[in-house]
Design a protein around this nucleic acid. Structure first.
Lengths: 343, 343
DNA sequence: CTGAAAGCGCTTACAG
DNA sequence: CTGAAAGCGCTTACAG
């Protein structure tokens, strides 16, 4: 059996309340007593029982708010499953989680959601921010004035007091893709197409940047075509791919940073090129697994979506419940590589 | 706030004890009362608070035994870290975990360890079995006679009543390695060496089998050399590699199923071949990360070691604590692919 | 078959 | 500054 505060209290000849005050730095204890209790706790190797603590605190009801953008898109939906998992855990420990799901991307709605969270007296907020000066100011207001700690997830916002960010390292995603694609063509070189979604999307352009960077430095024999943008739309992707094949009949591979892979595969199929063109696609969802299994996609570079929802909530809960600060400011989710054999 | 048994008890006009008896199927409740309580619980959407339950049960002290073989090898050491993590969690819930670490592989020691666990009155055992008829019999004796559920991890043993196995799917490890190595040489083909550890080790030979299988079917241009065995020894691996290079100066790649990569890299370095020979190695530990970063190893196929220790303990705990049976008989750990950019 | 009580390890007002 | 008591949600003997 592990040591309990009761045993420490008996050995120190004080009450359990006093031990609690010492061990949790609540003050109001005579220095000599404090010293003695601490020493006994050390000696006995005391480690608090989280269950007891959680149950004892469960009246307090730590309340965490979650604000998401584009809540109806596949990736965010998957991330929100992680939020649900964290919610169950937090509820078991007597806390609660409330959510505001925003459809599309909207600074106004986000500002409103934050006010709403304040009104509902949350103790902390996990949010997907929007790049907007008012959001920046409100995040700082919340964390400075109201002492509501904020964690950003999926996308980050610079110049704020948010305590940490949970999300992907998009540059490394691109580099990982390049390391593999590069090896495929290291001997003979070849032409590789790069298809992205929107030039304005930071995550996607960071993937492109990482990809180009490694290719240039590590695989000089490979020739990268100019990046084209399919707007995450399959029809557009198919058209773009047709154009590329027409201009570059010897194309060796395609790197897709985003959705649109179905359109690209459609085109490859029509041109009977699905066997010889190597395709590296992104994100582990939608039709991707099927296309991987059928051999259209050779490799998938993805990120663990659930973790992006789970971690922000748990980081805040551990902070509030245990006073445990986030381990690092940038909490990057794992970059996962899938072939059809390790799905 | 979530519904508690107290609220159900009040609404049903019975005591909390009775609600507990109904909801946990402890029997001894009049059918009408049982019916009523169940209905109210459903209606209110009752979900038990695990904290309360754990604290309430913490006198019982669920005790789980863990028996490991080859406990001083790097991979098992890493797996045992997972056991430690699970131990902390189980202890928080009022349970305990005791360990017997066996150095090397020994059926005799394992049998003794099992008897010892029985004497210490464990409620369940997670173990690395040894292929031996006496072990098989004792596992069946424990689970049938003493009702001690057993989970095997890392290696499995056929023909027993162990409730599930946690470990790698070695064949898929090999297939994953082949899918990648194959793409590297798909255009020009090439000669690939296969270096394994011991012919008698099932995991390793399954990796080889999966690798050869995919290569033969999917990449017929590639020529696989005969498998050689380095006995997981760097010096031996270096010698073997020297021999291979002498006989096959055009060698394109090496697949290593086990330790010995340091020896192989040593040889490649001396021969100034580290840049042009593609090396796919196994397991995420030891010097592997360093060799990956330096570019000696191009790709690492690994398995999450901690999970192999963590899961067996937690599966047993969830079984004993919640009556929650294992989700599947074969609980395979993820196969992880690492380049130097997604470490 | 059922209820009342004590207990798990901790926290939290409250009285002094 | 300190202690005694009540409470968190559940389980477990025990008495009837």
């Amino acid at each position: 059996m592990r040591i309990t505060i009761r045993q420490i209290a008996e050995k120190a000849g004080v009450s359990r309340g006093t031990v609690d005050r010492v061990l949790n730095n609540r003050g109001k204890v005579r220095p000599e007593v404090e010293e003695k209790v601490r020493q006994i706790a050390d000696e006995l190797g005391y480690r608090p029982n989280l269950l007891g603590r959680a149950l004892g605190m469960s009246k307090n009801n730590i309340k965490i708010g979650v604000i998401s953008q584009a809540a109806d898109t596949p990736f965010i939906k998957a991330a929100l499953k992680g939020v649900e998992a964290a919610t169950l855990e937090v509820e078991n420990f007597g806390g609660s989680v409330i959510q505001q799901k925003i459809t599309g991307i909207s600074a106004e709605k986000t500002l409103k959601a934050m006010d709403d969270m304040l009104r509902q007296e949350v103790n902390a907020i996990a949010m997907m921010p929007v790049e907007d000066e008012r959001i920046r100011e409100k995040i700082n207001l919340f964390s400075r004035e109201y002492k509501i700690p904020i964690v950003t997830f999926n996308s980050d916002i610079e110049g704020t007091d948010r305590i940490c960010f949970v999300g992907q390292n998009a540059v490394m995603c691109g580099k990982t893709a390049a390391a593999l694609m590069g090896e495929f063509f290291r001997e003979n070189g070849g032409e590789i197409a790069v298809i992205s979604g929107f030039a304005s999307n930071t995550s996607l352009s960071n993937r492109v940047r990482g990809f180009r960077d490694v290719m240039r430095k590590q695989f000089p024999k490979i020739q990268l075509l100019d990046t084209v943008y399919c707007e995450e739309n399959d029809e557009r992707a198919e058209e773009l791919m047709e154009g590329i094949l027409r201009r570059h009949p010897d194309l060796g591979g395609v790197y897709m940073t985003c959705y649109g892979e179905v359109g690209v595969c459609q085109c490859l199929k029509k041109a009977h090129r699905e066997q010889d063109i190597v395709m590296v696609a992104s994100d582990l969802m939608g039709k991707n697994y099927e296309l991987l299994n059928k051999g259209f996609i050779n490799l998938l570079i993805g990120q663990e979506a659930e973790g992006q929802g789970y971690e922000p909530v748990m980081i805040l809960y551990r902070l509030l419940f245990n006073g445990e600060p986030p381990k690092q400011e940038y909490h990057y989710t794992d970059i996962v590589i899938k072939t059809k054999y390790n799905i």
